[in-house]
């Protein structure tokens, strides 16, 4: 059976790919945010599993905690921006947002 580190990092890679796939493919602004969130989860798992593997769990926890705080602010701001976009254009469709091309 795989050892713990390898298993965890395998998950990290899968989740990261899933998040990036979601970002590439999605049309709906909210789903793009979900993609960012999935990527964020993979980072949390990466940090903590690295900490467990090298014995520094507590350092990893502090990093993870700080990171969670930062990400929640980013998500809140992103949602605010999406709501504003919806208010201005009545749409959350990414494909409709190409007014700026010259």
């Amino acid at each position: 059976m795989m050892d713990l580190l390898r298993l965890n990092w395998f998950l990290v890679v899968i989740l990261a790919f899933l998040g990036l796939y979601c970002l590439l493919v999605s049309r709906n602004l909210l789903r793009l945010l979900i993609g960012i969130e999935i990527l964020s989860k993979s980072c949390i798992l990466a940090l903590v599993s690295s900490g467990v593997a090298i014995g520094k769990v507590n350092t990893a926890q502090t990093l993870a905690i700080t990171m969670i705080v930062v990400e929640v602010v980013v998500v809140a701001v992103a949602l605010g921006l999406i709501i504003r976009a919806y208010g201005a254009t009545r749409s959350i469709d990414m494909w409709k947002m190409n007014q700026l091309k010259d």
Binding site: N8, S49, G51, V52, V57, I65, I68, V69
Partner: peptide, 9 residues
């Protein structure tokens, strides 16, 4: 993974 603080957050 014995990271209770991170889990709580």
């Amino acid at each position: 993974l014995s990271a209770p603080w991170a889990a709580a957050f």
